[in-house]
Design a protein around this nucleic acid. Sequence first.
DNA 1: CCGCTAGATGTTGCATACAACGAGGGGTTT
DNA 2: AAACCCCTCGTTGTATGCAACATCTAGCGG
Lengths: 242, 242
Amino acid sequence: MSTVNSRLHTILRIYYRAFSMSDTLNGQDGRHAADHAYRLIRDEILSGKRTGGDWLREGELADSIGVSRTPVREALRRLTAEGLLTYERNKGVQVKGWDVADLDEIFSLRTVLEPWGCSLAAERGTVDTDQLDDLAHRMDALVVDGHPADLDRLTELNNRFHRAILDGSGNTRLATVLASVVQVPIVWRTFAHYNPESLRRSLAHHHELVTALRAHDGEWAQSVMCSHIKSAWHSIREQSGA
Amino acid sequence: MSTVNSRLHTILRIYYRAFSMSDTLNGQDGRHAADHAYRLIRDEILSGKRTGGDWLREGELADSIGVSRTPVREALRRLTAEGLLTYERNKGVQVKGWDVADLDEIFSLRTVLEPWGCSLAAERGTVDTDQLDDLAHRMDALVVDGHPADLDRLTELNNRFHRAILDGSGNTRLATVLASVVQVPIVWRTFAHYNPESLRRSLAHHHELVTALRAHDGEWAQSVMCSHIKSAWHSIREQSGA
DNA sequence: CCGCTAGATGTTGCATACAACGAGGGGTTT
DNA sequence: AAACCCCTCGTTGTATGCAACATCTAGCGG
C-alpha cells in the first residue's frame, strides 16, 4: 500500500510538473525546487490555509508541490528557523499557534525597536522620504470611508513603509530582527481589526512620520512611531476580544 | 577519480564512525547526525578554526564529520539562517566575516534591548537572583589580579548570567532575538579585550544588577545594564584599535 | 474488563546516485 | 595577441531507497 501510494504520487508529481512548466519561466526563480517549496508553504501558512497546530507531512507537501521530499525538508527547516513552524525530532513539523500573549510580546518588542530605529533614521536622514510619501498616499487611496478596500495590498504597502524606515536606520540587523518577529502577526491581518477611526489615525501617523523624518527630528519621529505602534496594538487587542 | 575519492571517503567515514561510537553515548544527542554536524561546524566557526571568507564544502565536511552530505546540508542551512554563514546558490556557503561596523550594530542593539529586558525582569521579579548571585561570584573567582583565568568558562558564565535575566523579562522572543544577534561577538572573545580595570568594573556591574533586581527597581537595573553594555562595547572597540 | 506487548503502518532521518550548474583551461578563430 | 567557445571537472541541487523511530491496534494474559 505504501509502495503503491508512493508510485501513484510520483506519477502525479510528473504530471504536475509537465503542466506547470509554463509558469516556471515567469516566476523569478520558481524553477528552484527548494525556494519554490518554501514560498508555497509559507504562503499557505500566512494565508491561513494551514492553521495553528496542523501537522505538515513532508510527503504530502512534496506531492502537492511537485518536487521530492528533499527540497521540501529544506523549506520546512527554513520556516522552522524563522519561527513559523515548530519541529519535533522524528515527528515532523506543525504550524505554530499563537495567542494574545504572543501578540503582546511582539508588539512590546516593536514598541521598543521601531521607534528607536525611526529616530536613528531621522537623524541620519538617509531615508527616501519621497518614496515614503508615495507609499503613504497610496495607502490613503486604498481606504474608502474608513474601510480598507484591498487588505492584502494595504498590508503590503504598510510593510514596505515600515521596512523602508528601518533600512534607513543604518542598522541592518535591526531590520532583520524585526522582520523575523513581525511576520507572525501578518497572519492576524492587522488592518482587518481597525475601526474607521484607528485606520484614519494610522494613515495620519504615516504622513506625520514623513514630515518628522524630513525635519531630521529624531525625537519627533520616535514618538510618532511609538504612538503608531501602540495604536495598532490597541486596535488589535480590542478587536480580538482581549 | 571522483568515484575513487567517493569510495575512499566512504571507507574513511565508516572507520571514523567505528572509532567514535564510544563518545556518542555521553553526548546528550550527539548520535543524531544533523545535530552533531551542526554543533561541530558551529564550534569550528566560533573557535576561529574556520575564519571569515572560508568556503565550506559539503563533501569535505561530511567526510571529516563522518556523515553523509544530507545532514551536513541541513546544518549549513541552519547556520546560514542564524547568520554565521552566507549562502550562494550553486556555489555553497562561506563563513561570514565581520568588522567593527558589525560590532557597532550588535552593541547598539544590545544597548537598547538588554536594559529594557532587564527593567522588565526587575519589575516582574521573576528572576532567580540567588542563581544570578552565584554566577556573579563564580565569575569573580575566575578572575585573578584583574586577568581572566579561563576565558571560555568566564564567557559561558557571563552568557548564562545575561540569559537568565532575559528569561526573567517574560518576553521569550526578546531572548531569542538577542541570542541570534549576540553570537557573532562570541568569536571576538569579549573578555580577551578587557583591561584589568574594565574587567573589575564588569564584575561589579553584575553584583549591582543582582541588587537592583532584588530591589525590583526597574530603572536602576536598566541603567546598570546600560552602563554594563556600553562599558563592554568601549573595551572591545578600544582594544580592536578602532 | 484492563493492561500490556508485538506487529503493522506511516512518518521522518540518512545515505547515495544522478542531474544541473559554474569555474577554469585549452583550443580555435579573428 | 586577444576574444571566444567548448569541454572537463568539481561542487551543489534533487530524487530515491532504505533504516530508524513513533503511533496505533490486535491479540494475549492477568
